[in-house]
Write a protein that binds this DNA or RNA. Sequence first.
DNA 1: TTGAAAGCGGTACCAT
DNA 2: ATGGTACCGCTTTCAA
Lengths: 332, 332
Amino acid sequence: MTIMDIAAEAGVSIATVSRVLNQPEKVKPKTRERVQAILKKHHYRPNAIAQGLVRNTLHTVGILSVDIRREHFSTSAYTLESLFFDWGYTTILCNTGNDLRKKIEYLRILAERKVDGLVLLGSIFCHPDIEQAIARYMPHTPIILTNGQMPLPNIYSILGDNARGMEQLVEHIVHKGCKKPLLIHQDLSLNAQRKLAGFRLGMQLCNLPVEEHTIWSCGREDETGISVIDPILQTVSDFDALICADDLMAIGIIRYLKDRGISVPKDIRVTGYGNSRQGSLSIPSLTTIDSKEVEMAETAANMLHQMIEKKESLQEHFPVFVKPELIIRESA
Amino acid sequence: MTIMDIAAEAGVSIATVSRVLNQPEKVKPKTRERVQAILKKHHYRPNAIAQGLVRNTLHTVGILSVDIRREHFSTSAYTLESLFFDWGYTTILCNTGNDLRKKIEYLRILAERKVDGLVLLGSIFCHPDIEQAIARYMPHTPIILTNGQMPLPNIYSILGDNARGMEQLVEHIVHKGCKKPLLIHQDLSLNAQRKLAGFRLGMQLCNLPVEEHTIWSCGREDETGISVIDPILQTVSDFDALICADDLMAIGIIRYLKDRGISVPKDIRVTGYGNSRQGSLSIPSLTTIDSKEVEMAETAANMLHQMIEKKESLQEHFPVFVKPELIIRESA
DNA sequence: TTGAAAGCGGTACCAT
DNA sequence: ATGGTACCGCTTTCAA
């Protein structure tokens, strides 16, 4: 069923049908009703692609995330999708994984589809090649980047102060009596670097040394930290706390420690990052940082929506900062 | 940059540019190279919307899930999205929540966008109004429904045998010595009903009675089961196992029991359903059913892809069955 | 090998 | 109030 079929059946022109659809008050009531009856009878729905061609938009936003299976990203994506749905936009979900080429290919695809806006979830998207792809394919599309920055005029940033979050964690466990905490992180994305810097600062403020075996990385593929647990136990004998860069990792670490006869928090303390749901239900429940991901996603959605609708850049081009919050529970 | 700009700059017609793009072998090498150079110089990318209009497809599939934040759905969505990306399709993510109207509105939107295929995740989409909406808006679009069935010619089903899964769980805990297990579920979606039936059958096979206070529901909004824990403790004094319809609920229940001084599995046994990642890391780790969600999603993707590409229905219209697997760990 | 032109299904301007 | 028509950007057939 196209607008032409409707027009033919109603004995009017397609222009009139289009008017009934878009500006019904401009059509004589009698004609309007006749057309509307036929429209309803056939359950007519306009072809969004055709509309998109003339309007040059399909009312779509893209979300790029590394992996929607991580609670942090699924929560963000959920929040973004819900809000944009209410505003009449549909959402294209893109799981890029760690592959740079896939990220760029997705940008190209989204550009070809003329997405109205884009959200990049996480500092992992801060990369020169991605920046170039954006400059090349979507130089005017409003884009929000979380936890990272890119020097392009169409990109706005929302940053969680994760250095401060880490600092708070260090302060907290030192306050609890720890003398030798270790840090475990996954990779060295910008965000992870920020956390590391916060850790170092926190240690410094507490007059604690950061030594050769204080900082550990378990690599991007190992989300639960299993690959470092034995090396740590074999190498460092006297640590009393493990600060994990992520809740999931902390939960894994606690589990592996238990398997090795080490109890948390009795023997050593463990902290997470992110305030995931499982962290509140785990045993022991997790001391962690709430990075306010929902708030960040809401802010991202609002900013992006404003830029899309107003078709102009925002007044301020400074990044928006979101304050994390220390959540003290059982594990540390 | 449109195809016209390129054509003008190259001094050829748009037909030739189009040919260079789509059937380069049909263009004289010299012309082709000249056009390609200009294409590259401007980083030209075709407008997918315009292509979509003439091809009547944007190479898009839709995924409807109640809530992507649930591990089960995010895993399925991830799997689907990854496979379809490899096949050249982008994915529209739709979180419908529990609202029926939102589900139907999403179907309408996806129909307007001429999605090539659709996956409905979960039996919650089995509803007469949804069936009607599909018959009305997308009667010929290939659709896969997981854990449910709908009598429409374009809808295919993939079913997990969750009745059998529940039965296995009952058998297992009875084998462990339990005499009075209780079942806790969230709602009575078709899938939940199937689990319930499996529970009843399992109980019957073990010669255990299903009495007034054997089955509990915590409602759709309560994912962790906190709302039934106290009522159960006050009402039923002598139960020795809690069979939860979902891993997250089991984890919550275990946590709440601990808060009330009850230890799992020492005092009572608890089982989950779904084999989530957190269930393998929790303390105690969760005895559960692996419902093979990845396998189901892969099967869904393959079937859908085949229907989309071949433009014909599948030979068999019987639902595909996926066998669940009992995972025995610490909690029961 | 190449180009002209007819669509694809709408929107919106300009006449009538 | 309504209709004719150009146009959105691209594909594809038919001629040249």
